[in-house]
Amino acid sequence: MWYSNLEYELAGGEPWFPAVPVGLPRSLPVSGWKEHQRYPQGRSLPPLDAAPVEPVVCQVVIPPTYQRLPILSRLTSRFGVTVNILGAALSARRRRGGEFVLALEGGPQQQASSLAYLKDLQVQFVPKRDIKATPRLLNEGESLAQKPVVLPRGCDRVRLQIHIPAHCHPQPVISNLVKDHDVAVTILSASLPSQGDRDGWFELELWGLPSRLEAAVAALNQSDCALWLAK
């Protein structure tokens, strides 16, 4: 898939879409997965574009104060864009901002609303630069074929460590969890070099209705990703 190259325009503050009215969402809630549900009651559906356009690629730094919030997950649940993570570096210690290369797929209004939302949260857009993330090392007894994860009955929140192999990069694995299963996903740590196709390592927190959470974890179990319950 071909991606547009708009990183420098975004970082320089230049307009990347024609001027159109964009409604900014209310502040992102600190807790409560119901606030993360797609198109909550009382809000109208986002306008449907005639046809999707080429993905918008941007490189962002998310401040440490936002790293426990499902910001990237919210782009899918609220605005309907598909978010493909092309590079990521986020330490679990949260001393520095998390840096991500994102491809936002959807219609022009969906893309514009998503970018406006990030800017409203004061997420920093930066020029394109390589992310040289360090891959996670396997612990004794772990395997890249490790699965399945089985959730306790009635579980509505789970933390997972997940390995996403390079050949899965065209598939927006994390965004699909939100879109297909209506769960919220917070990225707690991430390591995905942006120099070509590399394996990705993520620690995620998923929450939602138990039935939806079970379906999301079942989809991961059936994928080519390896996953572990985070300790």
Rank of each mutant, 00 (worst) to 15 (best):
S4G: 13
A11Q: 11
G12K: 13
E14K: 14
W16Q: 03
F17N: 05
A19Q: 14
A19T: 05
P21W: 08
V22G: 03
L24N: 07
P25A: 06
R26D: 13
P29S: 12
P29Y: 14
S31Q: 15
E35N: 15
E35V: 04
H36R: 10
R38S: 09
P40C: 04
S44R: 15
L45S: 11
P47V: 07
L48P: 13
D49G: 12
A50N: 08
P52V: 03
V53H: 07
V53W: 06
V53K: 08
P55V: 01
V56C: 10
C58P: 08
Q59V: 02
Q59A: 03
P63S: 08
Q67D: 04
P70D: 02
I71M: 07
S73V: 01
R74E: 01
T76Y: 03
S77F: 10
G80W: 05
V81L: 10
T82H: 14
L86F: 10
A88L: 06
A89R: 13
A89H: 13
R93Q: 11
R95V: 02
G97M: 10
E99P: 03
V101D: 01
A103R: 03
E105G: 07
G106F: 08
P108F: 12
P108K: 08
Q109G: 06
Q110W: 11
A112T: 02
S114R: 02
L115R: 02
D120Q: 15
L121E: 03
L121H: 06
L121P: 06
V123C: 12
V123F: 11
Q124V: 14
V126Q: 08
V126H: 07
P127Y: 10
D130H: 14
K132N: 14
K132E: 10
A133G: 01
T134V: 06
T134E: 10
R136Y: 08
G141T: 06
E142H: 09
P148V: 06
P148D: 07
L151C: 05
R153Y: 13
G154Y: 14
R157G: 06
Q161K: 14
H163W: 02
H163P: 02
I164V: 05
P165S: 06
H167L: 13
H169P: 09
Q171F: 14
V173R: 00
V173Q: 02
V173K: 01
I174S: 00
I174E: 00
N176A: 09
K179I: 03
D180E: 14
V183Q: 03
V183F: 02
A184M: 09
A184E: 02
V185Q: 05
V185H: 04
I187H: 00
L188R: 09
A190Y: 00
S191Q: 05
P193D: 01
Q195I: 05
R198M: 10
R198V: 00
E203D: 11
L204G: 00
E205Q: 14
W207Q: 13
L209N: 06
P210L: 08
S211Q: 15
S211E: 15
L213P: 04
A215D: 05
L220N: 01
N221H: 12
Q222I: 07
S223G: 07
S223A: 05
S223Q: 07
D224Q: 13
C225M: 09
L229S: 04
K231G: 15
